[in-house]
Structures are given as structure tokens and as C-alpha cells.
Amino acid sequence: MRENPVFKIVSKILFGPIIIYGLYVQFHGDYGPGGGFQAGVIVAAAFILYSIIFGLERVRKLMPVIFVNYIMALGVLVFAGTGIASIILGANYLDYSPFAYKIYKAQHLGIIVVELGVGLTVFAVMLGLFYAFSGFKPKK
């Protein structure tokens, strides 16, 4: 299957648009359906498609395992750090109102940052699970 040029070219063409669509779902979550959970899965799906067609080694060069592990923790830190930032600015934990002067701008900002944290964690967990499942056994 990997030698089939149709799969190779289609997956190469689709790789970029899938990631852009994932980013659209990520940052457009407060206007339309979507958000961090879905976007993380979509972006991870782009990498998984690439690894199915071109082999795991090339994706591991693109997105190393240790990098994925760091992103996993980074997402949770971004989310929890938003809460710490609002405490430092003098509000309750995860209260977005002190981030901007107008309350709706503060809400938009807080939601975008928090959803980014969700997206990063979900993306890294999905990709890490795929690495762990498919890359553990050495090729014969």
C-alpha cells in the first residue's frame, strides 16, 4: 500500500489543509462548533495519516517523541497557568475578567488561551498513544 502513488500524493496534499482546518476549529470554537478537544484530534489525525503512508520513522523526525511528551504537559500548564494569572491579577481562579478592560474581550481572550491548552494536550495525548501502540514493536 505504501508504494501506491495515489495514497502518497493525496496524503501529501491533504496534510497541510487538515492542520489548517484543525487550527480553524481550534480558534473558531466560540463562533461555531468545535474547540480544543476536536481540534487536537484533527491535527493528530493529520500526523497519523502521514505516518500510515510514509512510515513511523519520518513522522518521528517531524514530531519527536520527547517533544510530544512535553506538549502533553505544556497544555495542562497553559490551562492551569491561566487560572494562576487571574489570581495574580486579583480575581478568582480561572476568572477571565481582569485580562482586558471590556468584559467580553477578556472572555474571548481567556477562552482562546484555555482552549489552546486543551488542544495542545489532546493533540499530544492522541499522537503519543498512536506512537506507543504502533511503534513499540521493531520492524522485521
Binding site: 470554537g29 466560540d30 463562533y31 462548533p33 490551562f79 468584559i103 467580553y104 472572555q107 477562552i111 486543551v118
Partner: peptide, 22 residues
């Protein structure tokens, strides 16, 4: 009216129930 966020689901998920989502 207050937050200018059309998708209520995202607003509940990330703002009202931010702690749950964390």
C-alpha cells in the same frame, strides 16, 4: 449580550465551567 459569544457550548465549557474542563 454580555460576552458576544454565539456558541453557548464553548462558553459554558471554557468559561462558566472552566474548572470542570481543567
Amino acid at each position: 449580550p454580555l460576552f458576544h459569544i454565539p456558541n453557548v457550548v464553548t462558553n459554558v465549557l471554557a468559561s462558566y465551567r472552566g474548572f470542570d474542563t481543567l
